[in-house]
Design a protein around this nucleic acid. Structure first.
Lengths: 216, 216
DNA sequence: GAAAAAGCTGACCAAATAGTCAGAACTCTG
DNA sequence: CAGAGTTCTGACTATTTGGTCAGCTTTTTC
């Protein structure tokens, strides 16, 4: 909601954003407990007191970062077209999720950290939203199975496969990089991951690729 | 290992283990940075100074915990029978991994945290070991594919599916519990997860279940 | 059973860290 | 350009935390 209830003063907000970006990087790298306000200040190239001018406390700052992250996530995860065919929905979902991971690796990792920590710092409201969305997709999958439009699978496990695998890729950047012996994952790497994931998920469901996406 | 040790002081080691177990719980819950020696001491019901009697520093303590965890992991992950058929190897691997997760949820979560943090606190030696094992399995899978004993898939992605999904289960205990509305995952839940995972992975590979495990 | 060793602890300490605040330095308006 | 409001900051504080240490207690050794 963009809303700290503060007046919109573009210049001031630039500084604020600067600090927010630095905070995102810091929280990504060190987690909530490990993050240091001083380092955030250094990275943003402002004195520490300036951080506290914009954000009363560390937890306020983290809230702001998390809120950004979850907004991003929710905006992208929102639409499911119930009428469309399973293969298309699943493929779109996967490609979108991989894309998000590519565009916002920091956001993604913070999200994952938060999940790992049992959502200790996430508001009830946002937790509920995330869960509701998952349950919605699961229901959809169950319908498809009932209608024999795909092979039977535990819907939650299927969602986990998708979620965990993309997530895992983003999370374990270090490990993945060390396996592939590269310094960063390219656009191609992500396409390859998306293709591979689509293939695997469709096989699990006994579905044929629709063909509107590329294939390996 | 400790089997041949001569100077064993059982009483002292009991205390040591007591502290180690408490530390495991603490590190699981709060991560390295968030962990507090005082809380570990409280949980172990010893004075804080006693913790430092056995472990010089926080990082020494964490090393000890991590070492335990990785030993567990490696012991279980070690053997791959190259001659056996793919379906059996994969199924065994999955069931063993799920079992580990069931038996040592704390260990598993610490391992995951460490991974998420880019192995910041893990020794080079242990990192290399983990990676080597992954590459070994990947090579095996590539051979099976070349011999047309299973459908083509990116071996790393396949391993990730297995790894990430079980891991994700353990990691997101909170979320999973809230979805199923239970307070703890039972033995049955884990069996169900293992069955489901085996089914999914075998479908990905175009393999038939061997039948020595149960099926859904 | 006494001396030595090992196990244990309360009381400290130094360093680090989140957060405060008085006032300087800007920016905007009339 | 004066004055009001906003943005910014150096210097400070309160508290928390990992870690030390002198000496007490228990166990082992001879």
């Amino acid at each position: 909601m963009t809303a700290t209830g503060r007046k919109i003063t573009p210049l001031g907000n630039r500084r604020r954003d600067q600090i927010l970006r630095a905070a995102e990087a810091e929280f990504e790298k060190y987690g909530y407990e490990g993050a240091r306000i001083q380092r955030i200040a250094d990275l943003a190239e402002v004195p520490k007191a300036n951080v506290h001018y914009y954000f009363a406390s560390k937890s306020t700052l983290y809230d702001a970062v998390l809120s950004n992250v979850v907004d991003l996530w929710n905006a992208a995860l929102a639409p499911i077209d119930a009428a469309a065919d399973p293969a298309t929905v699943l493929e779109d979902y996967i490609r979108m999720k991989v894309e998000l991971t590519r565009l916002y690796p920091a956001a993604t990792r913070i999200f994952a950290q938060e999940m790992l920590g049992g959502w200790q710092h996430l508001s009830e409201h946002l937790k509920r939203e995330t869960r509701a969305w998952t349950e919605h997709l699961a229901t959809e999958i169950e319908n498809w199975i009932r209608q024999k439009r795909m092979l039977p699978v535990d819907p939650f496990h299927l969602i986990f496969v998708i979620w965990a695998t993309t997530q895992h890729y983003a999370e374990s950047g270090t490990q993945v990089k060390s396996i592939y012996r590269k310094n960063s994952l390219t656009r191609q790497d992500h396409d390859r991951l998306a293709d591979s994931l689509v293939t695997m998920v469709l096989r699990i469901c006994g579905l044929e690729p629709v063909g509107h996406g590329r294939n390996t």
